[in-house]
């Protein structure tokens, strides 16, 4: 790892408190960390520990109750919804657990969709989509609708869709949650390979320790707090406990 590391994500004292009737649910209870450019981080924890809540707030899909999120130098908590959408369009790729491809579009069109939102003309965006489709190895399936593809293939399309805008940061919430373990490993390797090539930052939520071990760093989260930050088994064995 090189000396000159650039911080792309800085989270400071982040709280998210849901009110359900009279009671309060502390989904996030004071979280602080930084992620550097080019890092592959995994967020692991048991169900209900607040992983998704954290990721959604990083991606600007939810507003924090308290605290700061600075991504690429910009304060996410100060943006309104319009600005958040614009920020996502320009800086962020998102991979869903349930793929979330549009059923009426074929693979190529699905991948090109974020470029449409950027106002790119049809020819250029289809060309770019085709490049990314080749990268995930699905050129043969470019005219297939989501229903005509397996889960693994669909998720590769989903990854291609996140990659096509060449975002600085990619968020993925249990990207392999709907896939078997062998396919999951393939998908993980693919994601890792691609982001390392382009020096992109990937933040992935999972509850599977094995999948988390693909990451450079693993944030272990429990009851809305980060309990430990570990280095992934493939990149080191250091284990750091937090307070």
């Amino acid at each position: 790892m090189s000396e000159k590391k650039k911080t792309v994500i800085r989270v400071e004292d982040l709280y998210k408190i849901y009110r359900v009737g009279e009671s309060k649910v502390r989904a996030l209870n004071g979280v602080s960390f930084t992620i550097e450019k080019g890092e592959f981080c995994a967020i692991v924890g048991t169900s209900g520990s607040g992983k998704s809540t954290l990721l959604n707030m990083l991606a600007g899909l939810e507003k924090p109750t308290k605290g700061q999120i600075v991504i690429a130098g910009e304060h996410m908590e100060r943006k309104n919804e319009n600005q958040l959408v614009k920020f996502r369009r320009e800086h962020i790729g998102f991979i869903f657990q349930s793929f979330n491809l549009l059923p009426t579009m074929n693979a190529l069109e699905n991948i090109a969709m974020p470029l449409t939102f950027q106002g790119m003309d049809k020819e250029t965006r289809l060309k770019k989509a085709e490049e990314v489709l080749a990268l995930v190895g699905l050129t043969k399936h470019k005219n297939h609708k989501p229903t005509q593809m397996s889960g693994g293939q669909q998720q590769r399309v989903g990854i291609a869709r996140a990659l096509v805008v060449q975002p600085e940061i990619i968020f993925a919430d249990e990207p392999t949650g709907n896939l078997d373990s062998k396919t999951s490993a393939e998908v993980m390797n693919l994601m890792k390979k691609v982001i390392k090539e382009k020096n992109q930052t990937l933040v992935m939520v999972t509850h599977d320790d094995h999948l988390a071990s693909f990451a450079d760093r693993i944030f272990r989260i429990s009851d809305g707090k980060i309990v430990s930050i570990e280095y992934g088994s493939e990149s080191g064995v250091d284990h750091i406990d937090t307070k």
Partner: peptide, 16 residues
């Protein structure tokens, strides 16, 4: 609802 949500996550402008 879902489709609109996906589009928003992927950065489709609200005005659009």
């Amino acid at each position: 609802t879902k489709e609109i949500g996906i589009m928003k996550v992927l950065g489709c402008d609200m005005r659009n």
